[in-house]
C-alpha cells in the first residue's frame, strides 16, 4: 500500500511481517491465489480454460467498471450506496431511448449526463449539507430504483436489442471478451492515478484525514464532489454496458449490485467506513476472487446461496484485517 497518510509508526521487529501479512493488496492476493488453487484442484484444469475465464469475464465487465470508479468515492471517504440503482436507472433510460429509435452514441451521452445529475444531488446533500453519506446515498438508491421502475413501465422490461452494440460488446481478443480486458486496463489506469499522480494522492489524503488535507491546501469538498460524480459516471457506464449485453433492461437489473461490489471491494482492501485505504488493483482482485468462488460452486452444482455465506465470512475477515492493519477499532 503506498499512501501518504502515514500509517501510525509502530516500533517492533514484527513490523515487517505484519506488513507482509496485512498489506492491503497482500491479503487479497493470497485470497485470490487460494481461490485459483482451490478451483484448479477441485474443478480441474477446465477452471482456468479460456472458455471458462471468458464466461466469468463477461459477467465481470460491469462490476469491474463500477468498482473502479466507485473506488474513488470510497478512497475519498464518502461511500456511494446508490451505484446499484444507478446502474438500473442507466440501463432503463438507455434501453428506453434506444427503443424509441435514438442513435446509440447520443443515447449514451444523454444517459451519462442524467447519471451525473443524480450524482450531483448526492454531492449537494453530502458535501453541501453534510449529510451522512451512507444514509443519503441509501435514499438515492431507493429513489433511483423507483425512477428506473417507472421508466420500465408496467411491463417491467424494455427490449432494446441493437445488433451493432451487441457485436461490439461481444468482441473477443486473445480468446477473452475485449471489454473484460478493457475493464482490466481501466482498473490499472485507476490504480496508476491513485498511486502515481498528484490527484490520486489528494484523494487518498482527503479520505485519510480531511482536516490535515484541508490544512495542506487540498480542496476537500472539491475532491469529494469529483469522487461522487466519478462514482455515478462509472455506474452509468455500467448500466449502458448491461443494456448492450442483455439487449434489454429489466426490473432486476442492478438489484443488490452495490452490496456485491462493496463486499468484494472490502475483501479487496477498501474500507467503506474510512477513506484513504484500498487500491483499485486490490478491489479488482476482490471482484475476481468472488467471481471465482461463485464459478467454482456453479461448476460443482452447489447452491449459489453458499456464495453469499462465503462472501459474508470473507467480508468479516477482511474488515478484521483492516482493523489489525490500523483501521479504527470500534468500541
Amino acid at each position: 500500500m503506498t499512501d501518504i497518510t502515514a500509517a501510525p509508526v509502530r516500533k517492533g521487529l514484527s513490523e515487517d511481517w505484519r506488513a507482509i501479512l496485512t498489506g492491503s493488496v497482500a491479503s487479497i492476493s493470497i485470497t485470490f491465489i487460494a481461490v485459483i488453487a482451490i478451483g484448479w484442484f477441485w474443478v480441474g484444469p477446465k477452471f482456468l480454460s479460456f472458455g471458462n475465464v471468458s464466461i466469468m469475464g463477461t459477467f465481470l465487465i460491469v462490476p469491474l467498471i463500477v468498482g473502479a470508479f466507485s473506488g474513488f468515492a470510497l478512497l475519498s471517504g464518502v461511500v456511494d450506496l446508490s451505484i446499484g440503482s444507478m446502474v438500473a436507472f442507466s440501463s432503463a433510460l438507455f434501453a428506453l431511448l434506444i427503443s424509441l429509435g435514438w442513435d446509440p452514441a447520443t443515447t449514451a451521452v444523454v444517459t451519462l449526463v442524467a447519471c451525473l445529475c443524480f450524482g450531483g444531488i448526492n454531492a449537494i446533500a453530502i458535501v453541501g449539507f453534510g449529510a451522512e453519506p451512507i444514509a443519503a446515498t441509501l435514499g438515492m438508491l431507493v429513489a433511483l430504483r423507483g425512477i428506473a421502475w417507472v421508466l420500465l413501465g408496467s411491463q417491467g422490461t424494455i427490449f432494446a436489442f441493437n445488433i451493432d452494440m451487441f457485436n461490439l460488446i461481444s468482441l473477443q481478443l486473445f480468446g477473452l471478451p475485449l471489454f473484460f480486458l478493457v475493464a482490466i486496463a481501466l482498473t490499472v489506469v485507476a490504480a496508476l492515478i491513485v498511486t502515481r499522480t498528484r490527484a490520486g494522492r489528494h484523494v487518498q489524503a482527503v479520505g485519510g484525514d480531511d482536516k490535515a488535507a484541508a490544512r495542506a491546501g487540498i480542496s476537500v469538498r472539491g475532491v469529494r464532489v469529483a469522487a461522487l460524480l466519478l462514482s455515478s459516471f462509472g455506474a452509468g457506464l455500467g448500466g449502458i454496458v448491461y443494456a448492450a449485453q442483455l439487449g434489454s433492461a429489466a426490473r432486476a437489473t442492478g438489484f443488490g449490485l452495490e452490496f456485491q461490489v462493496y463486499a468484494a471491494l472490502m475483501i479487496g482492501g477498501y474500507s467503506i467506513l474510512r477513506g484513504g485505504v484500498g487500491n483499485p488493483i486490490g478491489g479488482a482482485l476482490g471482484l475476481l476472487a468472488v467471481a471465482g468462488v461463485s464459478n467454482i460452486l456453479d461448476l460443482k452444482a452447489i447452491s449459489p446461496y453458499y456464495v453469499n455465506i462465503i462472501v459474508g465470512l470473507l467480508l468479516l475477515a477482511a474488515v478484521l484485517l483492516d482493523r489489525i492493519r490500523g483501521g479504527d477499532a470500534y468500541e
Binding site: 444531488i121 446533500a125 449529510a131 444514509a135 443519503a136 441509501l138 435514499g139 438515492m140 438508491l141 431507493v142 429513489a143 433511483l144 430504483r145 423507483g146 425512477i147 421502475w149 417507472v150
Partner: peptide, 11 residues
C-alpha cells in the same frame, strides 16, 4: 413512484 418519494424524503 412510492420509492421515488421515500428516497428523496430520506435524502
Amino acid at each position: 413512484t412510492q420509492s421515488i418519494f421515500q428516497g428523496f424524503i430520506l435524502i
